[in-house]
Design a protein around this nucleic acid. Structure first.
Lengths: 106, 106
DNA sequence: GTAATAGTTAGCCAGTTGGCTAAGTGTGCA
DNA sequence: TGCACACTTAGCCAACTGGCTAACTATTAC
């Protein structure tokens, strides 16, 4: 494995890792329907705001989201809409999986 | 978020998490060109065999790989070839990213 | 200016990850 | 039978994750 190849896998792994959490998948899915402020997401998700804020900053750091402050609120939206194709790919792989995996994760 | 929705996100997150490591991405990429035994993968990757074995079992547990013992060797191959579409999706998102992310991961 | 609201940052902590070495399992060969 | 080889499992450990609460920042309303 060359250094360049390893670097490429690291980049891809970082993106996958950013998405590899149920809460962050929910956020991306929700933002695919339009921008949302942190408070709204917090209410939908049902964990404390600092936790949501950190999930958002992870996704932002991975280049998946961008934010915009308007007044006292911060709105987040998808930066790369193509992440949704991706999202459908995961869903496809997931649906191909046996129900055993579903049971394990439930 | 309903229980069913949460469960679905958990399944998808588990798949993403299984792929979210440079070594495991390498393995999936390599197996897309055909089955390989653990020893061959170990030589290509350059970490100890027990570590490779564990990466393989993680991918197997996630339903991405399947294995077959032939004699003294264990061959792994992709179980869901559609994981490769997925792989291309990640590459597409990655290439859309700024070079900043590349620099961070390098 | 003070208070209220929205959000982030910091610090704590239990649980997970990913590397390693050592030990165990199973198959084939002399 | 006994040894070598391929692989997995177990156990250790440092680093990371993801939740929380508390404290800080910034904007708006009074």
């Amino acid at each position: 494995m060359t250094a360049a190849t390893l670097s490429r896998y690291k980049v891809q792994a970082a993106i996958l890792k950013a998405l590899a959490h149920p809460t962050r998948l929910f956020i991306v899915d929700e933002l695919s329907r339009g921008e949302r402020c942190v408070n709204d997401l917090t209410e939908m998700i049902g964990v404390e705001m600092p936790t949501v804020s950190r999930h958002l900053s992870q996704l932002k750091h991975a280049g998946i989201l961008e934010d915009e402050k308007r007044g006292v609120q911060v709105f987040y939206r998808l930066k790369t809409p193509c992440v949704m194709n991706f999202f459908q790919c995961v869903a496809a792989v997931a649906s191909e999986e046996s129900s055993a995996l579903v049971r394990r994760a439930a």
